[in-house]
Design a protein around this nucleic acid. Structure first.
Lengths: 152, 152
DNA sequence: GAAGATTGATGGTTCAATCTTG
DNA sequence: CAAGATTGAACCATCAATCTTC
């Protein structure tokens, strides 16, 4: 077992633990304060950034690293609570758009503040600004490529 | 939104994507080649490192970042396939030990090689040795603390 | 036939409740 | 009553199959 391989394993184990810790913490906050999971939040966020606040479900799947069926089920929940609505595409009857409702936009704005604060405090508690930049850069490199859920 | 906060969000999103990409890839390899999930492998690994190759289930839960019931269910599977057995504690009848069987040890050795290679190639493809060291250190810091599943 | 979307069945994990033992 | 372990219900995600439309 070479030193390099050993470093790789350390990084891998660290990734597992860090992910578990961070997502547990932030998801807990988000659920407790706003009744949203991380994925719920990210879905609202991406929809808000889209033109007309609408996206094809298959594009949303890519952003969220979910399979198409995962998106259908996630949106089922958000539709049931009135945060997202359906729209149809005039030029292609196969696609269903997911569109942010007014309630959804309000919920997003309301949750954004505390969620961003939660992310910030969790990370800034451990890292200096420079370290944070380095970490973001390295993780970004690792996550790129064919990261999609349906890529296999 | 301060630049620091923005870096924190980048790091967070990077963590989510990197974790998804890495675990999908490695889990896929492990399942395809050896019929084990990452958690199966980690469980066998930790048991192999323990005295007598046995551990209390609650201790295993801590290592694996699972709840006690998660461990019970994970071990159910490993017991069904004969890789792990049960042992009792003479001094405390509440505890059940999980012990690695001979088959379990063999399976672990057989899977270790390709799994370590998979981890190595996936990470070394993206990072120089120095970067790998840095990444491992930063992630290690983020994952420490009360990372356990039952800590909430 | 391929693409977007959905559905049924399945696996893995958690939470809350329970059982047993200390 | 606390600790270890398990069980039932629920949740979230996946895969495979299906339906509709291009």
């Amino acid at each position: 077992l070479t030193p390099q391989a050993s470093r790789a394993v350390e990084a891998f184990v660290g990734l597992l633990r860090a992910h578990s810790r961070v997502t547990r913490e932030l998801n807990g906050q988000l659920v407790a304060e706003h009744g949203l999971t991380i994925n719920d939040f990210e879905a609202l966020f991406h929809l808000a950034q889209a033109e007309q606040c609408g996206m094809r479900r298959v594009d949303l799947a890519e952003r969220l690293l979910l399979t198409p069926s995962g998106v259908t089920r996630l949106l089922d929940g958000l539709e049931r609570t009135g945060l997202v609505g359906k729209g149809s595409c005039p030029s292609d009857a196969r696609v269903t758009y997911a569109v942010l409702t007014e309630a959804g936009r309000a919920k997003l704005e309301q949750a954004s503040c505390s969620h961003l604060a939660g992310i910030g405090s969790l990370l800034q508690e451990h890292f200096s600004p420079d370290e944070l930049t380095t970490l973001a850069e390295l993780l970004g490199r690792l996550g790129e490529g064919e990261a999609g859920a349906g890529s296999a």
